[in-house]
Computed example of a mutant assay.
Amino acid sequence: MLRCLVQEHPKLWDELLSQAEFAYNSMPNRSTGTSPFHIVYTKVPNHTVDVAVLPKCNSRSAGQLVEQFTTMLQEVRLKLIESNEAYKAAADSHRRQRIFKPGELVMVRLRRERLPPGTYSKLGRRKVGLFPILQKINDNAYIIDLPANFGTPSTFNVTDLSPYYPTDDAATTLSAETADPSMVGES
């Protein structure tokens, strides 16, 4: 928004920041259906700021204003809850639950940000392993028995783990000491 406002004068951004903030807070939000300004100040913003000291008084109109404000806040909360549920449903439609047990063998996806600088290769393997699961932290995180020379923490999100399916019925066991660190894909 600031880029659009400053255009050819990027050094004037600090002078236009308040205008950008006012414009942003005046626009209706997709989740709440109303503007942040309306939620906080209970009315649509004026184009010129009026600052006035209100006297202490007990009036029926003030009570009605409080009731309207309370009702509006409840409606906003309900809209936010509905919106969050819709976002969650959309995100959950792409998820699949995977539960691993300690001792189970998995393949690990090592992302670039997890590896020490200079060890990531675009052409290297994306999944390495077989590594046994040492401990389940929760349904979303596991501690893997990685060799110390991998240089990455051993806690992984479930999205970075793939179950290992052996090609035959023979039992497969593997420990961290026998793992080959060259499988990371050094350049």
Score class of each variant (00 low, 15 high):
His38Arg: 15
His38Glu: 14
Ile39Arg: 07
Ile39Asn: 02
Val40Pro: 05
Tyr41Asn: 06
Thr42Arg: 15
Lys43Pro: 02
Pro45Lys: 04
Thr48Gly: 01
Asp50Ala: 02
Asp50Arg: 05
Val51Arg: 15
Val51Thr: 09
Ala52His: 10
Ala52Ser: 08
Ala52Thr: 13
Val53Cys: 03
Leu54Phe: 10
Pro55Thr: 00
Lys56Asn: 03
Cys57Glu: 14
Asn58Leu: 13
Asn58Gln: 08
Ser59Pro: 03
Arg60Leu: 10
Ala62Val: 02
Ala62Asp: 12
Ala62Cys: 06
Leu65Phe: 01
Glu67Phe: 06
Glu67Arg: 06
Gln68Tyr: 06
Gln68Thr: 14
Phe69His: 13
Thr70Asp: 14
Thr70Leu: 12
Thr70Pro: 01
Thr71Asn: 15
Thr71Ile: 04
Thr71Asp: 15
Thr71Cys: 15
Met72Thr: 13
Met72Arg: 09
Leu73Gln: 14
Leu73Asp: 11
Gln74Leu: 11
Glu75Val: 04
Glu75Met: 05
Val76Phe: 05
Arg77Gly: 07
Arg77Tyr: 10
Leu78Pro: 00
Leu78Trp: 10
Lys79Trp: 00
Lys79Ile: 02
Leu80Gln: 14
Glu82Gly: 07
Glu82Ser: 12
Ser83Met: 11
Asn84Phe: 04
Ala86Lys: 15
Tyr87Thr: 03
Ala89Cys: 04
Ala89Lys: 12
Ala90Pro: 04
Ala90Gln: 12
Ala91Cys: 06
Ala91Val: 00
Asp92Ala: 12
Asp92Phe: 05
Ser93Arg: 15
Arg95Asn: 01
Arg95Met: 10
Arg96Val: 05
Gln97Val: 09
Phe100Lys: 05
Lys101Ser: 11
Pro102Leu: 03
Gly103Leu: 00
Gly103Trp: 01
Val106Ala: 07
Val106Thr: 04
Met107Tyr: 08
Val108Phe: 04
Val108Glu: 07
Val108Ala: 11
Arg111Gln: 12
Glu113Met: 02
Arg114Gly: 03
Leu115Trp: 02
Pro116Thr: 01
Pro117Glu: 07
Gly118Lys: 09
Gly118Asp: 05
Gly118Arg: 07
Thr119Phe: 12
Thr119Ser: 15
Tyr120Trp: 14
Ser121Glu: 09
Gly124His: 02
Arg125Thr: 13
Lys127Met: 06
Lys127Val: 01
Val128Cys: 14
Val128Ile: 13
Gly129Pro: 13
Leu130Pro: 11
Pro132Val: 03
Ile133Pro: 07
Gln135Cys: 08
Gln135Phe: 08
Ile137Ala: 06
Asp139Asn: 14
Asp139Cys: 04
Ile144Ser: 12
Asp145Lys: 05
Asp145His: 11
Asp145Trp: 08
Pro147Lys: 09
Ala148Phe: 08
Asn149Phe: 10
Asn149Tyr: 12
Phe150Asn: 01
Thr152Gln: 01
Thr152Asn: 00
Pro153Trp: 01
Thr155Ser: 15
Thr155Arg: 15
Asn157Gly: 12
Asn157Ala: 09
Asn157Asp: 12
Asp160Pro: 01
Asp160His: 13
Ser162Leu: 05
Pro163His: 09
Tyr164Pro: 02
Tyr164Lys: 03
